[in-house]
Design a protein around this nucleic acid. Structure first.
Lengths: 337, 337
DNA sequence: AGCGCAGTTGCAAACGTTCGCAAGCTGGTG
DNA sequence: CACCAGCTTGCGAACGTTTGCAACTGCGCT
């Protein structure tokens, strides 16, 4: 293994100079710097991370905690975060908590001491989580706790767009099929929907319970939606929409003829199923990148001593119109085979 | 920050004893061990990874390199690997290379020195990759290089099962829509298919080019499949199958009435699309776990001095029969609206 | 010519852990 | 009673880097 000592010997300087030449080039005289760089390159010198971390106290690596990597939503965020971390020359520890709050707390506890900061993606137990962090830099994704930096999708704007779209088609009674009770995104969507509908006096929102954010959740919700008398429905995510469509079809209803359906997330199933889903799209890749940027800035600010204002960038949510939404038809056709 | 010294003081022993009590409990007398463990727990002592790594030379962390985390296939493998690593108390660095061989080589070069070993998942440039590893423990997933440990899915067995299924339905001419030229899995599947068909003298295989492993690839392949005169088709993966079905439908053909389709991977789109796809299923979670186990064993063996035989566990590939396969119908009905 | 100052460089002390070595202790044996 | 073996524990030296401090250089100023 080649160490600073080897490089120093070859370059004819002391190890301190080698360290400085590589870490803070501006503090070393030009010719010396060149000699050191040359030697380092020739020897294919790679600084020992562990030693640097031990001495300097910071690792140049960050953590990312996600509930489920197999969920395309989080996979996309993770991918974005990873790409950004790489660009910044930092490492990224990705941990999958299997949607388990206990595992989440444990993961954070393990990550905190050996990273320079952690991104918590849709945390299930943010409060406990923040405790486990012991005051280390942290960025929340799609979750909010007072005074903690975060990045989020603009659910409010997304909901407004979805509702405007449905209203323009002629819908006046719109159902919302909710996700997990504890989901922050779900809360934001409900709130956004309520706000958006308040702007019109001719549109009514019906909230239809909480369901698992899976295909089965949508199947379970379908009958309630039918009974609600709504002519259009917005679902917590695309999978719920898929399940909903499935069950509606089983009951003899056609989408979008009898009911318009809007999904959320624009996961790639949205374009694969029949009919292709109208859905709300967030650039998850960018969300991941933004989270890392925000974290690095927070960590740097913390080191610099100046407290960084915990602002909260929100990423645009776009409406992608496909074939699951259409104008409503008069009630008499509903339920017809 | 609480260190071994603090624990030692509280437990009334020396730091060496603390270190031993926690790392190699069997080398410390019962009561002493208890005192140390108690103290460590009370103080919430967490060993400084960097220091341990620096001194001991091994990090207790491994690397996992995948081409694309957003691909459910790799996401599932990553998830399994992660879960297993956690169980073993090890860390796992997951790196996404965006399908880029250069990035892959770079990632490996960065990972190798700071981990105890690396899992390479479907590497695009395995040969270069192995060079960059500088002789460090490595396990290949779905790739083979002589003398290098690997885990793989039993593509051969899977292909045999798919072919037997189609033959039992009455198909005698089966097309295979291939994936990327450089894909090792694709090679294995072709070979497996050839072997399986050799066992019967009444079944014929038609290989239909190489296509992108995406929906578009399947759409592009559809017309060639129709022209091939096959009554059934096996595709490189489920997405290709989806694209294929899509294009067939556009040309007025019904699946499975006019053509039976078998996908590969059993990604969750397989059950969502219409018709639900008959497909080959690998337990990717287990594949990831197996890879980590194999890597840890290899690394331990290397440390122990005894060379581990580079065996190559193969995971079962099952056929999941859904609704995209059926008996063939006589030629005259083909192309009818 | 003497002095101070800025720009460079080297010395040496950490950082927190692991582990080889040896010392201490206990109990069994000659 | 002396001795040895074996178990347990402590001492202290690494591991490779960063960084505060001090020493040295050469230059411009008084």
């Amino acid at each position: 293994m080649v160490t600073v000592h080897d490089v120093a010997r070859v370059a004819g300087v002391s190890i301190s100079t080698v360290s400085r030449a590589l870490a803070t080039p501006e503090k070393v005289a030009g010719p010396t710097r060149d000699r050191v760089e040359r030697a380092a390159r020739d020897l294919d010198y790679r600084p020992n991370r562990a030693a640097a971390v031990l001495r300097a106290g910071r690792s140049g690596a960050y953590g990312l905690v996600v509930p489920d990597l197999a969920n395309p939503y989080f996979a996309a965020v993770a991918k974005g975060a990873q790409a950004r971390a790489r660009e910044l020359g930092a490492g990224l520890f990705i941990v999958d908590t299997d949607e388990d709050p206990d595992l989440e707390a444990e993961a954070i506890g393990a990550l905190a001491p050996q990273t320079d900061g952690v991104v918590l993606c849709s945390p299930r137990a943010a409060d406990r989580a923040l405790g486990a962090l012991a005051g280390r830099p942290v960025v929340l994704v799609n979750h909010a706790v007072d005074g903690v930096p975060a990045v989020e999708a603009d659910h409010r704007g997304g909901m407004r767009r979805a509702l405007e779209h449905l209203r323009a088609l002629g819908h006046r009674r719109v159902a919302y099929v909710g996700g997990p009770e504890r989901s922050w995104s779900d809360h934001r969507r409900r709130a956004g929907l309520a706000d958006a509908s308040a702007a019109y006096d001719d549109v009514e929102i019906v909230e239809v319970g909480s369901f698992r954010p899976q295909v089965e959740g949508g199947q379970a919700a379908a009958d309630l939606v039918i009974a609600s008398g709504a002519t259009a429905v917005i679902t917590f995510n695309d999978l719920v929409a898929v399940g909903l469509v499935d069950r509606l079809r089983a009951r003899g209803l056609d989408v979008p003829r009898n009911l318009s359906v809007v999904g959320c997330d624009d996961s790639y199933v949205a374009s694969l199923v029949t009919p292709p889903l109208t859905t709300l799209s967030v650039d998850l890749h960018r969300l991941g990148r933004a989270a890392v940027d925000h974290l690095v800035a927070t960590a740097a600010g913390r080191r610099g001593g100046e407290g960084v204002a915990p602002d909260r960038p929100a990423l645009d949510v776009e409406l992608v119109v496909r074939s699951s939404t259409a104008p409503p038809v008069p009630d008499l056709t509903r339920g017809a085979p």
